[in-house]
């Protein structure tokens, strides 16, 4: 199944991309995807990385076809 991954800030810089579509195994959990991508791109400080699934800040969830998964570094607004 296909999921769209979006990268922001420092993570986008490290991965050298802002978005990609991945074909992943059915039943993959968001946290598993996080681990995969962190290893793949060598994203530093994984504990500071938050996931948003379809624009909600959650990560304990099984992914579904068409989900949008965002990798968010620490917020810095204001």
């Amino acid at each position: 199944m296909k999921v769209t991954i979006k990268y922001f800030g420092m993570i986008a810089e490290t991965a050298n991309k802002t978005e990609e579509v991945l074909d992943v195994a059915q039943g993959l959990w968001a946290m598993e995807l996080k681990d995969m991508q962190i290893k793949k791109y060598g994203i530093p400080d994984p504990e500071a990385v938050q996931l948003a699934i379809n624009r909600d800040l959650i990560s304990e969830v099984e992914l579904k076809e068409g989900d949008e998964v965002a990798f968010l570094p620490p917020f810095a607004g204001g």
Binding site: F8, G9, P73, G77
Partner: peptide
């Protein structure tokens, strides 16, 4: 509003130095 914005809104900041190098800001 200010506290909520700083802690909850996915905004990212690249601090650019005078020599055009940078680091990423963290609230």
């Amino acid at each position: 509003f200010v506290e909520e914005i700083k802690s909850k809104v996915p905004i990212f900041g690249k601090e650019i130095f005078e020599d055009e190098t940078h680091q990423w800001k963290m609230n």
